[in-house]
Design a protein around this nucleic acid. Sequence first.
DNA 1: CAGTTGGTTCAGTAACCACTGAACCAACGG
DNA 2: CCGTTGGTTCAGTGGTTACTGAACCAACTG
Lengths: 151, 151
Amino acid sequence: MEDHLARYVERVAHFWEAQGVPRIAGRILGYLMVCEPPYRSATELARELQVSKGSVSSMTRLLLASGSIEVLPRPGERATDFQLSPDSLEKKLLRRLEETVAFRAIADEGLDLLADAPAAQRERLTAIRDLYAFLEQELAGLMDRWRESRS
Amino acid sequence: MEDHLARYVERVAHFWEAQGVPRIAGRILGYLMVCEPPYRSATELARELQVSKGSVSSMTRLLLASGSIEVLPRPGERATDFQLSPDSLEKKLLRRLEETVAFRAIADEGLDLLADAPAAQRERLTAIRDLYAFLEQELAGLMDRWRESRS
DNA sequence: CAGTTGGTTCAGTAACCACTGAACCAACGG
DNA sequence: CCGTTGGTTCAGTGGTTACTGAACCAACTG
C-alpha cells in the first residue's frame, strides 16, 4: 500500500480507536474507505494491513455483527470479499432506537415501583421517561428523513 | 436500601453495563434515579451500594467527566453531594455532534487525498461525507428542538 | 491540638481483551 | 487423491481496567 494511503488508514483507525473500536477493526474500516476496488478478502486485508489472519477473522466478525461491513456476494468465488455496508447508518440508528425504547421501559418500570411515592420523587423519573420518549420520536423521524433522502 | 429498590438499581446498572459503562457507575446512576432526596454524598453511596469508597471516588469522577452527574453546590456543607445532571442529554448530544464533525473532516481529507483518482473511488468517500453532513444537520436540529421543549 | 469525618490516592488483584502464530478445517484444482 | 489456498479456532501474551482495602490528606469540632 502506498505511504499516503497507509497514513490515512491509520488516521481513520485512530478516530475509531478513540470511540472504543479495536485498532485493527478501525484499520479495516479505513482501508475499505479508500481501496480500489472497494472490496477485499480476509487474506488480502491481512497482507495489506500487515496483521495476522486470526485478527482479521475476529475483527471482520465484529464488524459484520455491528453492521459496519458486509460480505460481497460473489457466487462461484473461492474467497469471500468484504466491503463497507451502505446501510450501516440505518442499522446503527435502529439499534440506538431499540436501546432508547428499552430505557424508557426501565423508567416506566421505576414509576410503577414508586407508584405511591411523593410527587417530587416521581418527577425525576418522569422527566427521564419524557426525555427518552423525546429521543425515541426524534430517532424515528431522523430515520424516516434518511430513508427519504436515499430514495 | 429496601429490597425492591435494590433490585431496580441492579436493573438500571445492568442496562448501562450492556452499553459498556462500569457496573458500579451504573449502580450510582440507578440509585440516583430513585433515592429520596435525589442527591447523595460519596460516603453514602459507598455505604448504600455496598462498594468501596475508592470505587465511588473513581466512578463519580468518570460520571462527572461524561456529564451524567454533577455536584450539588451546598455552601458550608462538609460533604459534597452528587445528583443526576439535568442537562446530561445536551452534553452527550454536543459530544456526538463534535465527533460527527470530526469524522466529516476526515472524509473530506480523504477526498483531498484522492483528488485525482477515478470518480468511482471518490464516490464512496463522497457518500460517507454526505452521510455525516446529514447527521450533523440532524443533530443540530435535534438539539434545538430539545432546548425549545425545555424552555 | 487531638479526634473525627469526608474524600482521594495508590498498590495489588482478578478479569478481560486485542493480537499473534500455529494448528486445524474445508473446498477446489491438478 | 494429494497439494494448495482461504478461512476459523485456539492457546498464549502483553496490556488494560474495574474493583478493593489501606494509607493518606484535608477540613471541621470539641
